[in-house]
Write a protein that binds this DNA or RNA. Structure first.
Lengths: 119, 119
DNA sequence: TCGTTATTTCATGATTTACTGAAATATTAG
DNA sequence: CTAATATTTCAGTAAATCATGAAATAACGA
């Protein structure tokens, strides 16, 4: 992950409602949640929620798919891993042995390949 | 770290120049850098830099001390660690065994020339 | 003291962000 | 087809963010 992508991801998460939405989606796991269910949980108007979803999506932090009338949003775990990698990489210059990799996995157990690849 | 503190830290980092400044300070280690040296590295007007330092400081990501005419800014590593903890905690609900703790340590003091580089 | 250096403070303005509510779109049920 | 549901799009607006430059403050040296 490069600097501009990190700024994009950080910006997307740097808002009360979006952080709440994202955390909710992380807990929901890879299957995701319909927008309406998220709206109810965080108490946001539908149009406001769309606004925030767009920003999370632009940053690559969530994906969306249609299921009937519902739009299902799901966390994109790879992006959070890349962000954590970027931040810890930044932190551990010259002291790498003190740093364990930060890894973000979906809530429901699932074989995820954990790569340390950094752009 | 609680949700509002995380939003504060994320907001502070969610800006091109501030992220560059923060990374620079991390590389500089606990001794920190005088404001002027940072200004030169990231090519910012002094008043603009003060503006950004204030935000990093409000978020607890940096500290300042005076040294003669210079103000020395230094990264506050604990806050980044708390943020990483918050984010990985959020990520690893129900899959904790897959998650290594993210740790941010100061760079070992190397007398390397410090520059604000992308990537 | 006076002048210089280092940084902050403040006023101003342009841009971006986040919210609201109305209208539009897509999908399903009757 | 018509109505209902789920969500997006859009226009309008208030507030926050970021930059600029001039003036103020602090510390030092001659």
């Amino acid at each position: 992950m490069k600097n501009p992508d990190a700024v994009a991801a950080l910006s997307a998460l740097a808002q009360e409602h979006r952080l709440a939405v994202y955390r909710l989606l992380v807990q929901a796991g890879p299957e995701g949640l319909p927008a309406g269910q998220v709206a109810e949980a965080v108490d946001l108007a539908p149009s406001a929620l769309t606004f925030h979803f767009d920003r999370l999506r632009d940053a690559g932090l969530v994906t969306v798919r249609r299921d009937g009338r519902s739009m299902i949003y799901a966390a994109q775990f790879e992006t959070m891993n890349a962000l954590l990698g970027f931040l810890t990489d930044n932190c551990c210059q010259g002291a790498a042995e003190k740093c364990a990799p930060a890894v973000c996995s979906p809530a429901k157990s699932r074989r995820t390949k954990v790569t340390a690849s950094q752009e």
